[in-house]
Design a binder for these strands. Structure first.
Lengths: 302, 302
DNA sequence: GGGCTCCATCGGGGATCGCGATAGCGTGGG
DNA sequence: CCCACGCTATCGCGATCCCCGATGGAGCCC
């Protein structure tokens, strides 16, 4: 079924004559004649009575006219959705859905302002944000559930994924303000006598910290691992111990006096990698998100 | 927009590979490839990611898939309506709408059983019945508001209409059972002294009766004309006078003793003409109605 | 690395599309 | 009465499109 035929159908019904319909459609009259006959043959019923006084729909044509318009409406919706997804070049905005995954700590700190900026720039864009660990991010990108992922890893060595380092976040040791080490400088031996509240295994800088602490001879550091950054931060704020986090995730608490810096041994900054699937199509929406993320991270922290 | 492309689209989304979709569609694999690329070009956005592990829809493809299915649904409805209108050759039934006009007197007497028979034979057929005089019937057929009309006229001399005489209805003079002439034989002179309740001008047999009564010298018959046959019949039943009607329209009242026959001068039977437009398409539904009407009138009254 | 599966591309034969020209038909004016 | 006009149907033609089979390249498994 060729929707062109349906457009000629409704045009003819509206115009009342083949000649007028052809003019409206910018076609030759003979073309409209053939199109309507084709449609009548395809549907198996005459659609118009060709009377000397004009061309009027038959009873069947009148009924089918509504259904033909419904088809054309559905096609118009399809086209509209497609073109909105593709982007409106006039306004420079894009629409559609983009699903991104990000490390828990970024979701709560840096991403809200990025998403707000995206909403302003692209009102039609629907951004879905999931808090995911590195493993879940890789899975989601592989399975198509994620368009983009932000992971805090030095390397992503998946051949079907493409990682781009967009920032490096400085890490900070933090403790409650009334903690004995708060505001002080501590070496590995001092730290190894404290309790630490860190991420689950798989978090690169937490793992490296745990390895370093356990490598200090003659000590048994207390290690508690949390899936949620919030829970760990709460324990630290309650004075139960220390943690090591990207500085941006605790800037609010540091400024508010609810946490304090501990100047520990040098910790290499953690790279922020923006990862996508190597072979999947990058929608204009995903491209817009990529640009916004790159800009947001670049201007403060590389 | 060619809906074939949309069918390949959903088939590919379902099948998960070009090869499998081509098998399901009974097409060559290269054809599906070209069709999908054509659709992607037409919509301006990639619909599938061709991954080594299979062909999966992009985010845009997933969203557009629903809309494509909506289009195909609308097309299926269009086709279903068209074919139901055309008729189901397996069951021999037809569907659709047929609008017929008929003289008031027939609507109340003969047509209900015909319509009931049509409903039994063609459950999908929607019959609209309008009570119309001859002038309105001609107008309605001309304007396309009526598919068929039953008129009680000896001749229909409209070049663009086609009339077919399907019956001749005997006429009967009737009066109230307690009327002096009830059951008796009366000649023109006796009748011309009575009051008559007949149809509006334009009803052939009423007009002829009025002319005959007025032609009787030395009398002034009382003539009252009604648009509605019911009103006239009520007046007669109340004993106010006589009327002349097709016998079938008063058979119930005659059998119930509410009206009585008066044996008046011979009145030529009134022809029932089934009229349609000469050049308009006769739908299968209208053809079924024509056959039913012809049969119903033929077996009792010609 | 060889075989296998899958998708993209290419060339060709056939069908289709849209066009202009023309014929048939009905109408209205001179 | 005849002719001119407007409308639709038909025809022939050039261009395009469609679908096919064959072929090539890429990735995967053994």
């Amino acid at each position: 079924m060729e929707t062109r035929l349906l457009e000629s159908f409704v045009a003819l019904a509206r115009a009342g004559s083949f000649t007028a319909a052809a003019r409206a459609l910018h076609l030759a009259q003979s073309t409209v004649t053939v199109q309507i006959r084709t449609l009548e043959k395809e549907l198996g019923t005459p659609l118009f009575d060709r009377l000397p006084s004009g061309t009027v729909p038959t009873a069947a044509g009148l009924r089918l006219l509504e259904e033909a318009e419904a088809v054309l409406d559905a096609v118009a919706r399809l086209r509209a959705t497609a073109s909105s997804w593709h982007g409106d070049t006039a306004s420079g905005t894009v629409a559609g859905q983009v699903t991104i995954g990000a490390a828990d700590s970024l979701c709560a700190s840096r991403l809200p302002s990025v998403i707000a900026a995206l909403r302003r720039a692209h009102p039609g864009l629907e951004v879905h944000l999931n808090a995911v660990g590195t493993a879940a991010a890789v899975d989601g990108l592989r399975g198509g559930r994620l368009d983009l992922a932000l992971v805090l890893e030095p390397e992503v060595v998946e051949s079907d994924l493409l990682a781009h380092r967009i920032a490096e976040l400085p890490l900070t040791y933090v403790a409650a303000p009334d903690h004995p080490l708060a505001g002080r400088t501590a070496d590995w031996e001092e730290l190894a006598r404290e309790s630490f509240f860190v991420h689950e295994e798989g978090c690169s800088y937490s793992d490296r910290l745990v390895r370093a602490l356990r490598g200090v001879p003659g000590t048994r550091p207390g290690i508690t691992r949390f899936g949620s950054i919030d829970a760990a931060r709460s324990c630290v704020a309650a004075g139960l111990g220390l943690t090591l986090l990207p500085q941006v995730t605790v800037e609010g608490q540091l400024a508010g006096g609810r946490l304090a810096v501990v100047h520990g041994p040098e910790a290499p900054p953690v790279p922020v990698q923006l990862v996508r699937h190597r072979r999947r199509w990058v929608s204009p929406g995903a491209r817009a998100v990529t640009e916004e993320l790159t800009a947001a991270f670049a201007d403060t922290s590389l």
